[in-house]
Amino acid sequence: MRRRLPSNWQTWGWPAILAVLTLAGLFMALLGNGDLSRTASWMALGTPLAVIAWKLYASRP
């Protein structure tokens, strides 16, 4: 019996979402003007780091 492989969305879905969020944060930081774009860019750029930290903490034995 062969094991079924995960689909491309299951494999690359969350990394693609985090990549788009990071790119949006970079564009907001470069092109934005004002406090709202600055805050949004910091949140968009900090989210992938928070996800990485959360996953590392959750995978500890």
Results as ranks from 00 to 15, higher is better:
residue 60 R to C: 09
residue 55 K to R: 15
residue 28 M to L: 15
residue 42 W to K: 03
residue 57 Y to D: 04
residue 57 Y to W: 15
residue 51 V to L: 04
residue 30 L to I: 08
residue 32 G to E: 07
residue 40 A to V: 05
residue 13 G to S: 09
residue 3 R to A: 04
residue 17 I to H: 00
residue 44 A to F: 07
residue 42 W to S: 04
residue 25 G to Y: 06
residue 6 P to Q: 04
residue 32 G to C: 11
residue 34 G to K: 08
residue 59 S to M: 05
residue 46 G to A: 00
residue 30 L to Q: 13
residue 56 L to R: 08
residue 45 L to E: 02
residue 6 P to K: 01
residue 13 G to H: 09
residue 28 M to T: 12
residue 13 G to P: 11
residue 28 M to V: 07
residue 17 I to T: 10
residue 1 M to G: 07
residue 21 L to H: 02
residue 2 R to M: 09
residue 36 L to D: 06
residue 39 T to H: 05
residue 19 A to R: 00
residue 21 L to I: 09
residue 37 S to Y: 06
residue 32 G to Q: 07
residue 26 L to Y: 12
residue 51 V to I: 10
residue 54 W to I: 00
residue 56 L to Y: 03
residue 30 L to S: 07
residue 38 R to G: 15
residue 6 P to N: 03
residue 22 T to G: 03
residue 56 L to I: 03
residue 27 F to D: 04
residue 10 Q to K: 10
residue 56 L to E: 05
residue 16 A to R: 11
residue 17 I to L: 15
residue 58 A to K: 13
residue 5 L to V: 08
residue 33 N to K: 10
residue 2 R to H: 11
residue 45 L to K: 02
residue 47 T to V: 01
residue 10 Q to L: 13
residue 19 A to T: 14
residue 55 K to Q: 15
residue 17 I to A: 14
residue 16 A to V: 15
residue 5 L to H: 05
residue 43 M to S: 13
residue 52 I to D: 01
residue 29 A to F: 09
residue 57 Y to I: 07
residue 55 K to H: 13
residue 19 A to P: 00
residue 23 L to Y: 03
residue 54 W to D: 05
residue 30 L to R: 09
residue 15 P to L: 06
residue 29 A to G: 11
residue 32 G to Y: 05
residue 36 L to T: 14
residue 55 K to L: 13
residue 22 T to N: 01
residue 61 P to K: 10
residue 36 L to R: 14
residue 58 A to H: 11
residue 18 L to M: 14
residue 12 W to Q: 12
residue 16 A to M: 14
residue 51 V to H: 06
residue 39 T to E: 05
residue 51 V to Y: 07
residue 40 A to S: 12
residue 16 A to P: 07
residue 54 W to T: 08
residue 57 Y to N: 09
residue 39 T to I: 10
residue 3 R to T: 09
residue 12 W to N: 13
residue 34 G to N: 06
residue 36 L to W: 11
residue 43 M to N: 06
residue 57 Y to L: 15
residue 43 M to G: 12
residue 42 W to G: 05
residue 60 R to Y: 11
residue 31 L to V: 13
residue 46 G to P: 01
residue 30 L to A: 14
residue 54 W to Y: 11
residue 18 L to F: 08
residue 52 I to N: 00
residue 13 G to L: 07
residue 12 W to G: 02
residue 21 L to Q: 07
residue 29 A to C: 03
residue 59 S to L: 12
residue 22 T to E: 02
residue 55 K to T: 12
residue 33 N to S: 14
residue 38 R to D: 12
residue 18 L to A: 08
residue 22 T to L: 06
residue 27 F to Y: 05
residue 35 D to H: 11
residue 41 S to F: 04
residue 8 N to L: 12
residue 17 I to D: 00
residue 17 I to G: 04
residue 4 R to S: 14
residue 37 S to R: 07
residue 18 L to I: 06
residue 29 A to N: 11
residue 26 L to K: 03
residue 16 A to K: 02
residue 31 L to S: 14
residue 59 S to E: 10
residue 59 S to N: 12
residue 57 Y to V: 13
residue 48 P to K: 01
residue 36 L to H: 09
residue 54 W to A: 13
residue 50 A to G: 11
residue 43 M to C: 12
residue 21 L to A: 10
residue 23 L to P: 01
residue 34 G to H: 06
residue 17 I to N: 00
residue 23 L to T: 11
residue 48 P to I: 02
residue 55 K to I: 07
residue 36 L to P: 00
residue 37 S to H: 12
residue 45 L to S: 01
